[in-house]
């Protein structure tokens, strides 16, 4: 029977699965975004220290993250890394939702590489004298970055950062393969039980769109704010 039947996947049980899936997707997104931003900013700062080995280290990190698929990173963290950890660490992680922890680490570290590249290009467009002016006032190296350079770099990098944020939001769906019960995972569960495949995936498609559209809106609003300020 080709007709669509959404009521089959909107029973109380499946509604609950979808809602918890959505909540998990949002949680993953927030944790990954905060982690990726923090690590991305750190990488950017480390890369600005005029010391060649550090620069090479960050370069190697960024290339490793960018040139290996995210799915592989997820597998390495979820299946590979625990083998290297002591039992006590494994016990702790296993009793604290290990799927979520490793998914956040893998996705955040992966996106951080891209964010640091975006910030770096944002810094490159700043005149070098901005940094000099800050240092001449008496700002420390880190103070100059924190108060003068990074805020401007963030604004310059806003379009690519919004883009990265969207990619990150969608990338959370990959966590399904290591068993994080987020939206995509729940949709697969539901279609497996109900055979309502199209219905299941169209519902989460709408859910993803409902998540990304506000991000796009927020991004363009921030860009407009910026533009009116500096011109």
């Amino acid at each position: 029977m080709p007709a669509l039947d959404f009521s089959a996947i909107f029973t109380e049980h499946y509604r609950w699965l979808l809602i918890t899936g959505l909540a998990m997707t949002l949680l993953l997104f927030v944790l990954c975004w905060v982690g990726a931003m923090a690590v991305g900013i750190l990488l950017t700062i480390v890369r600005m220290v005029p010391f060649r080995p550090l620069e090479l280290l960050v370069w190697a990190y960024v290339e490793y993250q960018r040139n290996v698929p995210l799915l592989v990173h997820l597998f390495v963290w979820y299946f590979g890394i625990p083998q290297l950890l002591p039992y006590s660490a494994n016990d702790f992680i296993n009793s604290h939702n290990s799927e979520l922890i490793f998914a956040v680490i893998a996705i955040a570290l992966y996106q951080a590489a891209y964010i640091s590249e975006d910030l770096r290009s944002g810094i490159r467009t700043l005149p070098k004298v901005q940094f000099e002016a800050a240092r001449a006032m008496g700002f420390t190296f880190l103070g100059s970055l924190r108060w003068i350079i990074l805020p401007q770099a963030m604004r310059n990098s806003l379009p690519p950062l919004v883009n990265q944020t969207l990619l990150l939001f969608k990338a959370t769906s990959l966590a399904a393969v290591i068993g994080v019960a987020e939206l995509t995972y729940q949709a697969r569960l539901i279609e497996n039980e109900t055979y309502r495949i199209f219905e299941s995936f169209s519902v989460i498609t709408v859910a993803y769109l409902a998540g990304t559209m506000p991000l796009i809106w927020l991004g363009s609003r921030l860009s407009r704010n910026n533009a009116s300020r500096t011109r």
Binding site: P127, V129, Q130, E132, A133, A134, R135, A136, M137, G138, I148, P151, Q152, R155, R229, T230
Partner: peptide, 17 residues
């Protein structure tokens, strides 16, 4: 030391943000 030495640049170098 730099706090005791004001420095004024040709291009002003105010912080645009």
């Amino acid at each position: 030391l730099r706090q005791k030495i004001g420095f004024v640049f040709q291009q002003y170098n105010l912080f645009p943000h």
